[in-house]
Write a protein that binds this DNA or RNA. Structure first.
Length: 894
RNA sequence: GGGCGGUUAGCUCAGCUGGUUAGAGCGCCUGCCUUACAAGCAGGAGGUCCACAGUUCGAGUCUGUGACCGCCCACCA
């Protein structure tokens, strides 16, 4: 590996090479461990990739999600876990079907014309061509998933498992079929679940319509509705039994206008006396409440719409009209007959299809449902008992809230693309046979005149099973024993109910017997939404969508990953700001140049062992210090990652690498590196040890650049195929060195003080000046021992120690540990200096007053913990000294 | 109608079980092309922690109320 690295880091040249290498070498493939093997003894960490839709393109949300997952997986792997990350894609029923229908439409064909079988073949072709986009992008981004375990939700084995689940739930009485009000999308022509309906505030109208009372000419009852067209299906008018306005109409009937159908007035709590006139039309086939009321009162159900939202033959003169055309015509006709009592503006929530935004129609329809309560009860318990822990924990509230108000789940879809329901209808006796494999005779009458149910299952039905089906369920596999339950789920809150909740319900139900517990995962980390720099939600219509691949090509994957990680603090959305990414590109460049620096000296020295481990006992202050710092922040990074504080972890490494390792350590050791070959070799080997540790620490966050430099350090003969397979620094206690850290901090403070003085006195950069220092003997010795470091980094020539206070020397600095003054002829800018001192003084005096007030308070002295009181007393002593010295300095200026 | 979250420097955000002087990055100002890095180095300015009330010896942190912003859920005709 050549060491003549380019001056500026060019991620593009490097990343593609490593991304391909990781996949080619199958570095992250996890074989099922053989019993008794080493792997079988490793602790296991399993993560399931939330399967992207085959129709999807990678967006920033994915990239955040994948970055977090990859950091955790690389970290766990490096911590010695058998870390398995399983990727796959979801067949995405409606979305994919829409995509292919659109393609067909462009060719002038409809799916109906093509026929079911041919259409499904088209979808498979489409999926072959376009379905792998996101996973390919993931490969480019270096996700450390096991590509040999990639699945697709329509794979044969997964489909078999879906059938098995359906049959078992049916046998257990948890799946039923029936005619109920469902959300119907007239464009997709299918039922959809409650979750697939998005509610939007809609400024609509409330129409008040007079229904004539039968047999009492001139008498009307006024009802109000937002959907007048549904009146065609009215089979009653309800009034509240307690509403005195209608006592005289109890038991009477009304004439449904336009159709002239006589319908009863019923007494039902459905009618709220407070709303409108207190009377409500009842349309059991087109409203969930009315449906229930209909059952209570044995009302007929008249469905007046077809599957495309057109009025059907039950709509009399309106048959064939679209629902909104019919509305207009009905309103017109009512007006014409003088039956309109009024129209009011009325804002209400309208339901739209999540996929196509068509207004959803509540409609009576025969569908398959899951009886959800028993599953939900167990799923609630799992979280209550902390068998599953949410981070941030607040999401458990949202989860409970939804779970406790859950309705039965409509799982059938009138689509062609998906898992077909394993039920066969008998043309002779009408019995429905549910079976694991294609039935050829009715289970009741034995007739062979049977046809399979034409519906398919909700996409989320199959994805809800993934935590166990990907490991081979229903077979009793070793994979299930070893990898189930998965350890963690990282996902966005937008699919908390769609997917997370369903996995919990189904996992708990079907894996009840599993020895390691039935829950599908032990932890759920919910991440935030990625917004644009203006905090707007990214959306195609707004045109503010950032393509992760484009951003990545501009700044490098590592920089984008680091941006996302450093902003991923729990609970708040991420406003993705490219200026931040620019900063992390600079960070990558910094790392790169630190490596160049190391290699440059290596070449000069003509060889050193960069990978020989810790070369010797650290024998200089800076070595003891940086070793201590590395281990201390390693401990802290590990703790942050345990809590999914990606931001903390990233920031900790960042400030260590840049602010301590580069800014101080590398600067300090420069003379050693340019000294004798032997000194340089020793310094280099120690430097390399620290550098290599920092690279390992950083590698889950920035896998590419760390891999590149790590390999370069090993000169083409690394002990392992990848830094990703090395051990993660844990922070070893015995390398922590409080004394070295304290001593370095004194030297740093001294150096910064002098630099500060120089800047203030405007000393020419090239001019070195002597300094005087007043401090205790310990600090004097420390400064003496590290004289050359001080002189060089503070641009100083000559250090004189004095016992006298330097506070009144022109251009001096006072700290609690030392006083320092520049020996320099330049006139001090008295006005500026005096202003600065006054400002300092005011602050110090404020602090002193505050501290003394507290110390004068008996309550404080008795109630505050001793260390706080002691600390405050110490502060007062120091403040007094500083104030005195500042006053002296101020006096000296006059 | 229910539920949840946010408000800290010009911008984007940290701030752990209340404890001594509230931090970072970017931006801004000043000076440096110092042979790893100008995507850099050194120094600096900048905050009534949304408001009010309360608990406490002590509140950015806990409680309550309000304001503003945002999100989720919901079968009000």
């Amino acid at each position: 590996m050549p060491h003549d690295l380019p001056k500026t880091y060019d991620p593009g040249a490097i990343e593609v090479r490593w991304a391909e290498y990781w996949v080619r070498e199958k570095l992250f493939h996890v074989k099922t461990p053989e019993p008794g093997s080493d792997a079988a003894r490793q602790p296991v960490f399993t993560l399931l990739l939330p399967p992207p839709n085959v129709t999807g393109r990678l967006h920033m949300g994915h990239m955040l999600n994948q970055t977090e997952m990859d950091i955790i997986m690389r970290w766990r792997r490096m911590r010695g876990f058998l870390a398995l990350w399983v990727p796959g894609t979801d067949h995405a029923g409606i979305a994919t079907q829409m995509m292919v229908e659109r393609q067909l439409a462009a060719e002038g064909i409809s799916r109906q014309k093509l026929g079911r079988e041919a259409f499904i073949k088209r979808v498979w072709d489409w999926r072959e061509h376009y379905g792998g986009a996101i996973l390919a992008q993931m490969k480019r981004l270096g996700a450390s998933v096991d590509w040999d375990r990639e699945y697709f939700t329509m794979d044969e084995n997964l489909s078999r498992a879906v059938t098995e689940v359906f049959v078992r739930l049916h046998e257990q009485g948890l799946i039923y079929r029936g005619a109920y009000i469902v959300n119907w999308c007239p464009r997709c022509m299918t039922a959809i679940s409650d979750l697939e309906v998005v509610h939007e505030e809609y400024p609509g109208k409330l129409y008040q319509i007079r229904y004539p009372v039968a047999g009492q000419s001139g008498k009307f009852i006024t009802i109000a509705t937002t959907r007048p067209e549904t009146m065609l299906g009215d089979t009653a008018v309800a009034v509240n039994p307690k509403d005195p306005r209608y006592f005289d109409l109890h038991g009477k009937r009304v004439i449904l206008p336009l159709l002239d159908r006589e319908i009863p007035i019923i007494l039902d709590e459905l009618a709220d006396p407070e709303f409108g006139s207190g009377a409500v039309k009842v349309t059991p086939s087109h409203d969930a409440n009315d449906f229930q009321a209909g059952l209570r009162h044995n009302l007929p159900q008249i469905n007046v719409m077809d599957d495309q939202g057109r009025i059907n033959e039950n709509g009399g003169p309106y048959a064939g009209l679209d629902r909104y055309e019919a509305r207009e015509k009905i309103l017109h006709d009512l007006e014409h007959r003088g039956l309109m009592a009024g129209i009011k503006d009325h804002v209400y929530a309208i339901g739209k299809c999540d996929r196509c935004k068509t207004i959803v129609e509540p409609r009576l329809s025969t569908q398959w449902f899951i009886k959800i309560q028993p599953l939900a009860d167990r799923a609630i318990a799992a979280v209550e008992k902390q068998e599953i822990v949410f981070t941030p924990e607040n999401y458990s509230k949202t989860y409970f809230e939804w779970m406790r108000n859950i309705h039965d789940w409509c799982i059938s879809r009138q689509l062609w693309w998906g898992h077909r329901i394993p039920a066969w209808h008998c043309g002779k006796c009408g019995h429905i046979t549910v079976a694991r494999s294609a039935a050829n005779a009715c289970g009741k009458c034995g007739s062979d005149n049977i046809t399979q149910d034409s519906d398919v299952l909700d996409t989320w039905f199959s994805s809800g099973l993934l935590p166990f089906t990907v490991f081979g369920w229903p077979e009793k596999t070793r994979d299930l024993d070893i990898f189930y339950p998965t350890s963690l789920l990282i996902t966005g809150f937008d699919i908390l109910f769609f997917w997370v909740a369903r996995m919990i319900m189904l996992g708990c139900h079907f894996m009840a017997e599993h020895s390691e517990g039935s829950v599908p995962f032990r932890e759920v980390y919910i991440h935030a939404l990625v917004r644009d720099a203006e905090r707007q939600k990214m959306s195609k219509t707004k045109g503010n969508v950032l393509d992760p691949i484009e951003v990545t090509e501009k700044y490098g994957t590592d920089a984008v990953r680091f941006t996302l990680a450093s902003m991923a603090s729990p609970g708040t959305d991420i406003a993705f700001n490219e200026s931040r990414t620019e900063g992390y590109r600079a960070f990558a460049n910094k790392i790169w140049n630190a490596a160049r620096f190391m290699f440059m000296h290596l070449d000069r020295v003509g060889g050193a062992n960069l990978t020989g481990g810790l070369p010797q006992e650290a024998d200089t202050l800076e070595d003891r210090w940086i070793l201590s710092r590395l281990n201390r922040i390693a401990g802290s990074v590990n703790r942050s990652l345990v809590e999914y504080r990606f931001d903390e972890a990233a920031n900790t490494i960042y400030s260590f690498f840049w602010g301590e390792f580069c800014d101080w350590y590398l600067e300090i050791i420069k003379p050693r590196l340019s000294g004798s070959a032997e000194d340089a070799r020793c310094a280099l080997e120690f430097l390399a040890y620290i550098f290599e540790g920092a690279l390992r620490l950083l590698s889950p966050f920035m896998p590419f650049i760390t891999e590149e430099i790590w390999h370069a350090m090993h000169e083409g003969t690394p002990p392992l195929k990848s830094i990703a397979l090395s051990r993660y620094p844990q922070g070893e206690e015995h390398w922590l060195n409080d004394q070295a850290e304290e001593e370095m901090s004194v030297l740093q403070e001294l150096i910064v003080s002098v630099r500060n003085l120089r800047a203030e006195l405007k000393v020419e950069p090239r001019v070195k000046t002597p300094i005087r220092v007043q401090a205790d003997t310990r600090i004097q010795e420390l400064a003496q021992e590290n004289r050359s470091m001080l002189e060089r980094l503070a641009n100083v020539e000559g250090i004189e120690f004095t016992a006298q206070s330097l506070a009144h020397a022109p251009g001096s600095r006072t700290t609690t540990r030392f006083e320092v003054a520049l020996v320099y002829e330049r006139q001090v800018d008295k006005a500026a200096e005096s202003e600065r001192l006054k400002k300092d003084l005011a602050k110090l005096e404020g602090q002193l007053a505050n501290a003394e007030r507290q110390l004068g308070n008996d309550q404080f002295l008795t109630k505050a913990p001793p260390h706080v009181v002691e600390g405050l007393k110490k502060q007062v002593r120091e403040l007094k000294i500083l104030i005195e010295k500042n006053n002296m300095a101020l006096g000296a200026l006059k």
